[in-house]
Simulated assay, not measured.
Amino acid sequence: MYITITAQKVEGNYAQSAADFVDYLEKENEGKSIEEVEHFFDQHKDEISAEEVIKEIDGNTAKLKKKEPKFYSITLNPSARELKAVQDSPEALKHYTREAMKDYAKAFNREIDGRPVTVDDIKYYAKVERQRTFKGNDRQIMENQPYATKILQLKQEIRSVERGESIGNIKKLQREIQRLEKEAPHQLNGKRIVRGMYKPGPQSHIHIIMSRKDASNRYSLSPGSKYKASEVEMNGKMVKRGFDRDTFIKNAEKTFDGMFGYKRNYVESYKARKTFLNDPKLYFSTITKLPTNERAVAFRLLQKSGVNTALLSIPTNKIQLTIKAINALKKGIGKAIESGSIGV
């Protein structure tokens, strides 16, 4: 499960309405029949309209300054294995989202009217999306890039010849383009994979938009707080503050595993991701020391993500990876993490 939390941000300025973001989330519904449309939902209601979402988020911004974010967003990105565990069911993902938002509320070190924050204090709206497109940080796009660059150069040459600015054999240049299109390493339905192309297989994920203010429009609940858990004196009173992002993500992961009986492999875990970022050698060493069956699964998951696991095939008692090998593994695993392809 790859979970991201981001603040509202549009070209360096905070928009005064959630309309653009909500419209972006509605794009997948374009051209669909009424039965196929995916609606917004919250903790208790289904089939909420985009208009209501905009109205509720925009109307819940009391005392927020123009330079403060009005809302935040969470994206829950299940891996292919996790989607298989829930049979890619939108209803199962909705159920999970509602449980994960309870974990989100618990991660706040805040009190409202003398009690801890609960999910009913969070004004949020969520939506299951069923498709994903290839982006620039996907391995397939990056590995196809040298071919894309050369193809673009050849097309520019053809245009130059057509305008009479240079001399060249257009048919020969076109044949070279065709050759490069076929030789690009990553293809889908006989075509070179490019940005914006829909990814194959189950791609369901959940977008969540949360108001910066609580449901009563009195208190600010910011998951972007730099404080995990602390107290500060305000108006003569000690007030709790902070949000623990690590706790939220760890608990959301545990919630998924508990709900669906999911057997999470080490390389899929948030703990593994943190270890990789902070201590790559420990990350690699831990993988090689996993029980045989778990290690085999870990290797398969990494290989599917394009990581060269041959560099990990070293006897555990001789795990002296060279700097070159470490860097090669870091590069491969880093790309997999960025694209969410191993769900960590």
Rank of each mutant, 00 (worst) to 15 (best):
T6L: 09
A85G: 03
D138L: 03
K67Y: 13
V22I: 13
S216W: 00
E268T: 11
R159F: 13
M210E: 07
A184K: 00
K240F: 08
F41N: 04
E294L: 15
A298L: 08
R98K: 08
G261N: 08
N13T: 12
G164L: 11
K228N: 10
E28N: 05
E47K: 12
D88F: 01
K70R: 15
Y270K: 03
G196A: 02
D42Y: 07
N137H: 14
L152Y: 10
P200H: 05
I122P: 05
A50I: 05
V119I: 01
K237H: 15
T247L: 13
Y262I: 05
P291K: 03
S33V: 08
R218A: 06
D121V: 10
Q16V: 12
Q178F: 10
D20C: 11
R264L: 15
K324S: 14
D214H: 00
K237Q: 15
S339V: 01
V161M: 07
R130V: 12
K263T: 11
T118P: 01
A85N: 11
F21M: 11
F256H: 01
V53T: 06
R81S: 15
S313L: 14
K127T: 10
I34F: 07
N317G: 04
F40G: 01
R192I: 13
I48W: 04
E157W: 08
D58T: 03
P291Y: 03
N278I: 12
D113W: 06
P315R: 05
V10Y: 14
T292V: 12
K324V: 14
T275D: 09
K135V: 15
F40I: 07
Q153F: 10
E111T: 12
K94F: 01
I34S: 02
E47F: 12
G340A: 13
P291M: 10
V128E: 00
D244R: 08
I57C: 03
I319C: 11
S211Y: 01
D257R: 03
K106T: 11
P280D: 02
P116K: 05
S230N: 14
E30G: 13
K66N: 02
K254R: 13
A336F: 12
A328F: 10
D113M: 04
F299H: 01
F299L: 11
I337R: 00
A92P: 02
A126G: 09
K67H: 12
M234D: 11
V53D: 02
E231L: 15
A92C: 07
A229W: 00
F108G: 00
E38L: 10
R192P: 00
Q153A: 10
A126W: 04
N169W: 07
Y270A: 06
N327V: 08
T316F: 10
A336Q: 09
Y72C: 10
L329P: 01
V194I: 07
I177A: 04
V119T: 02
Q140C: 05
K199I: 12
S33H: 09
N217P: 07
E56H: 07
F256S: 04
R195E: 13
L311R: 04
Y270M: 06
N109L: 13
K254G: 03
L25C: 06
E233Q: 13
Y72F: 14
S216H: 06
E68L: 08
D121E: 04
N144E: 01
N169A: 08
E231F: 15
G190M: 11
A85V: 03
G114T: 02
S204K: 07
